[in-house]
Simulated scan of single mutants.
Amino acid sequence: MTTIQKNQSVLLAGASGVLGRHITHVLTEAGHKVTGLGRSRNNGVSADLMDRDALLRAVDGHHFDTVIHAATALRKPPVRDRDMHATDALRTEGTAHLVEAARLTGARRFVVESMVFGYGYGDHGDRPVTEGDPFGPQGTTPRLERHIAAMRTKERLAFESEALDGVALRFGLFYGPGGTDALLPLLRKRQLPMPADHGRVLPWVELTDAARAVVAAVERGRPGQAYNIADRTPLGFRAHVESVAGAFGLPKPMTVPLWLMKPMSYAHTVMSSRLRVSCAKAEHELGWTPRYPSSLEGLAALRSADR
């Protein structure tokens, strides 16, 4: 593992989001100084990533050692493909603007939140995908290519930007404090039908574990490298939601056929996918391991904290 400067000054785009709040807390605990960047006036730097000129004016005169891109336009889980479009734009134009801002502040390190779906949606079989596998392959449909191209572009901008040491974290699906809460009223009212998994599994990661990986990338990530970040227990979408129901004593979701989800185009794509990833590289190079090896432990901790 390569260790770089401690006690860094960090600019965090997306600090007010669910993951961003966890990142802020863990970075601060590790001794770093975090400045939030976002449209809210509660941020230390108030600017919209999509407004290049306003962003550059907002950061002018500031200095940061590291810039983190964890901004998302999502306020709830995406259901239709159009729900992802604003986040796709943040991954492309927003990243290009933030790269310019990072250079203007004199930053050396640029860490981006990426996703395991950048390996492609669909059935990847039972072999765990590693960082050596192709990332950002051509999408099988125009609508999927739009999402994959955005993830491909975000990483390329991080890795190829002159004077910046780019690091990408390819996260599994998030759950945990601030992320799982939205499911509870839907389960309580039995308004969250789910198809059977039929052997389909996906990588998951608890939000505080994800935030710890960001700190590890800030301190020890190798420039130009990507790292898979997920727990040790891939689960189907339904199996995960059933675990949420069990942890909180709520009814299990009703079972519906997968085809019935087709109008919910993005959710249907995710629930139709099968993907396992290896996190051996993150464990070896970042010294990161999940505190919660499965949703079972992570949800039990969440339930305990709610009592």
Rank of each mutant, 00 (worst) to 15 (best):
F64D: 11
L192D: 00
P78A: 11
G221K: 04
M151Q: 15
G44N: 08
S161A: 15
R303A: 15
D181Y: 00
V18M: 11
R143V: 07
T208H: 12
C279D: 09
R146I: 01
K154A: 10
R82G: 00
A247L: 07
L235E: 13
A301D: 11
E155W: 11
T130Q: 12
L157E: 14
A86G: 02
G132H: 06
P223A: 15
T87D: 15
D65H: 05
F248Y: 07
A71V: 02
P142W: 06
T130C: 11
S243H: 09
P251C: 05
H22K: 02
A168M: 10
H69F: 11
L90H: 09
V111F: 12
A280F: 00
E145H: 08
M254T: 01
L12A: 05
Q191C: 03
L104Y: 06
D209F: 13
L98A: 15
G224K: 03
A30M: 00
L12G: 10
A267V: 02
R103E: 11
A150E: 06
L37P: 14
L90D: 06
A150K: 05
S294T: 01
H25Q: 09
A13Q: 01
P257M: 01
G118L: 08
D133K: 05
E145W: 06
M84E: 04
E283R: 07
P293S: 01
A86D: 15
H69L: 11
G36Q: 15
D65I: 01
V59T: 10
A54H: 15
A230Q: 09
P128C: 12
A213N: 02
G199S: 11
A54C: 05
R156E: 13
L11I: 05
G246S: 14
R303M: 03
F110N: 05
H124Y: 10
R57F: 03
M194K: 00
R91L: 01
R212P: 12
F237C: 01
A101G: 13
A73H: 14
R82H: 13
L56Q: 08
H124W: 14
T87A: 06
T66S: 10
L27F: 14
R21K: 11
G179V: 00
S46A: 15
P223Y: 08
R127S: 12
M271S: 03
F237L: 06
R274V: 05
V112N: 14
V67A: 12
F159T: 04
L104C: 03
Q8G: 12
T233P: 05
D123Q: 07
P177N: 03
D123A: 07
S243N: 04
